[in-house]
Design a protein around this nucleic acid. Sequence first.
DNA 1: CTCTTATTGATATTGATTATCAATATCAAG
DNA 2: CTTGATATTGATAATCAATATCAATAAGAG
Lengths: 150, 150
Amino acid sequence: MMDFKEEKKVFSSFLKGRGLKHTAQREEILKAFLSEERHFTAEDLYLLLKEKKPAIGFATVYRTLKLLCEANLASEVYLEGSRVRYEHKYRHEMHEHIVCVNCGKTIELKVPEMESLTKKIEKKYKFKLTEHRLKLFGKCEECRRDKNEE
Amino acid sequence: MMDFKEEKKVFSSFLKGRGLKHTAQREEILKAFLSEERHFTAEDLYLLLKEKKPAIGFATVYRTLKLLCEANLASEVYLEGSRVRYEHKYRHEMHEHIVCVNCGKTIELKVPEMESLTKKIEKKYKFKLTEHRLKLFGKCEECRRDKNEE
DNA sequence: CTCTTATTGATATTGATTATCAATATCAAG
DNA sequence: CTTGATATTGATAATCAATATCAATAAGAG
């Protein structure tokens, strides 16, 4: 089992640097968020933490997830029409997403070509780019197999 | 001034094909939507049409925009944290978006490399891709100039 | 014209997220 | 250790976009 020492340190110094306080709730939320390599929604975490000693409120989960984003430990993933999800960011390389429109499965993929592509676009459109999001939609292998599709 | 004959025809036959009715409201919404090459929100159109002879309700605007999407005349653009926007789709090529994080300006751009890139990804990840969305975020030239940034 | 059925628009409702605020916890300074 | 200033919490209300409801109306096939 991992202890997430590094991430905790990052969060602590982020809080200190901002004059914010280190609380039991924030610690719990961070731990729960890091516990799995999935894309949690605020609700997921709220339910997961419901059992804890001092039950943690919905608002606190939302607030803390925002803090994690600001501390660069998490980032938001927008999947249109549904809740915002949060994914791990610390020591995770830039990546893209493929979503299966049938079963909803989302997988992360690395597209090395993106870097040179964004550089080219930067030059052409005179933007200073800081971020990009590529989302691909389609049907995964299993879903096509189930339906006997090509 | 354009008359959008073709788009109207597409919409009419879409409605007929579905057993839906051709109404004055739908006609007005289509015309307003086509009138400008911008990314309208449902609210934008509602306000634009407020003045019209029979004022058009909010719900009707939403409903009709959904129909326009189904008729392939419009498509939804999700800009996280804000309202859904609708852009022209009929006779408009596939394109990507750059958003200025400072002034909010969104521009459309063509990225010819995307096609071969998505083909490659399809093969590698065994997905049958039907759609992709690439959004780039950064600062546009003017915003950088205003702030004397590099 | 008539009748069936889709449509409209006012409004209520939902669902996700954020704001409010009184009670409480944190932590730096004494 | 206290203390005290201030950040935090959590229950709940509020907001915001979008959708559902439903009675009154309009479209259009026959």
